[in-house]
Design a binder for these strands. Structure first.
Lengths: 212, 212
DNA sequence: GCGTGAATTACACAGTTGTATAACAAGGCC
DNA sequence: GGCCTTGTTATACAACTGTGTAATTCACGC
């Protein structure tokens, strides 16, 4: 007489992944308030109770989603170096260009990021995630800068500056795309990073792009 | 027999101001989700029903609060020019330094800003507010750049770049203050804006500061 | 095949949310 | 000083929130 919904047992990893992915999609679509336990579980194809079987509470799921988002963005910027030439100037130029253009610089990604930023001040664990991912990205940038033929005297300062420039343009390009022409932000990011580092990143990028 | 709460009638402007201020304080303290109609009205010293007497719905109050926040931040950056000398290099340096240091660069302000950013994609009116305030700030910066003795060839590009740098450092300094030494971000912002514009903003700022 | 443990569903619950509506009272006007 | 507009309170309501708990049913070991 019961018409209980049939289901399949899945691995813990699979279920956690599905729930995190569903949460991110919902936050992207409708802001943090749209990611309710019921909406998340429905999108993941399970019932609400299961969330608390894999996460102690909703906060923990939120943290997991934030970590996943930041890891994704860093690895997307890094992916462009996978099959890049070994010339450090070209590598830096490609990395910077990738960071201020899609899919890294994307309205959905920025909105997602903003949704989590509000939690940083209140949740020490979220703050820790932020520190690790921010410093991780910056250190990556710094290592690219230190590999340059004529590295700057204070690579840490240079990395902070370029990181600030990248983050600002990343955000502005995603939030107000109609205010910029195609590739304008890439050009600006390369020109100004070049001015900061006293090298010509723009032509290095252009010649590399024309090679294909 | 009724012990109905006594009250005073106030002007529409006063009530709207109080409600907006209460909403901003709550978002700052506990994120967007803390700004419920009941919490807002309690903090403003009224009952919940009154909100809908002054705002058609909660969304409208949210929009008003966002507009107010952005106006405040721009005017705070601008305030430093009030009694600044007429030397355009000094004026630009003061403006940039103010934008990446308290009270403009502040964890509360950044968290508030992030809380609203999530709405930009969904709410066209919020998007319009964002466009106006972003372009307003950038145009201000561009006018300061154009006033320089040797203005750059493309002031728009320079303004976009400096704005990006400022926004990035504004955000990073507020979100992870322990990662930077005192005045480090001001120095970096001035050095790198100077590199982009080919002028020496850092010494202009330092000599101006030592004048007092 | 068949038990058995655990993944999953189903349901309940108390609290909160935004909103609608009616009763009330403050303060200006004559 | 009494009326009348309307700012303000009070209360109701249905929808939704996160969470706790018991009942089911899947899938694996034997």
């Amino acid at each position: 007489m019961k018409d209980r919904r049939p289901y399949r047992r899945e691995s813990e990893e699979r279920r956690r992944d599905d729930l995190i992915a569903a949460a991110l999609e919902l936050v992207a679509e409708g802001g943090a308030k749209a990611a309710t336990v019921r909406a998340i579980s429905e999108k993941a194809g399970v019932t609400a109770g299961l969330i608390r079987h894999y996460f102690a509470n909703k906060e923990e799921l939120t943290r997991a989603a934030y970590t996943r988002l930041m890891d994704q963005m860093t690895s997307q910027s890094l992916a462009v170096l996978q099959d890049a030439p070994s010339d450090p100037v070209i590598r830096l130029a490609l990395f910077i260009a990738a960071s201020v253009s899609p899919p890294v610089s994307d309205p959905v990604a920025v909105a997602l990021w903003a949704a989590f930023v509000q939690e940083l001040r209140r949740d020490p664990e979220m703050h820790a995630v932020h520190r690790v991912t921010y410093l991780g990205f910056r250190d990556l940038l710094q290592s690219l800068i230190e590999a340059l033929p004529a590295p700057p005297a204070d690579p840490r300062r240079s990395a902070i500056a370029c990181n600030g420039l990248i983050d600002g343009l990343w955000m502005e390009g995603a939030l107000l795309p109609e205010a910029f022409e195609k590739d304008e932000l890439i050009d600006i990011a390369l020109d100004c990073s070049g001015a900061i580092l006293h090298i010509d990143l723009a032509t290095a990028y252009r010649t590399e792009r024309e090679k294909t």
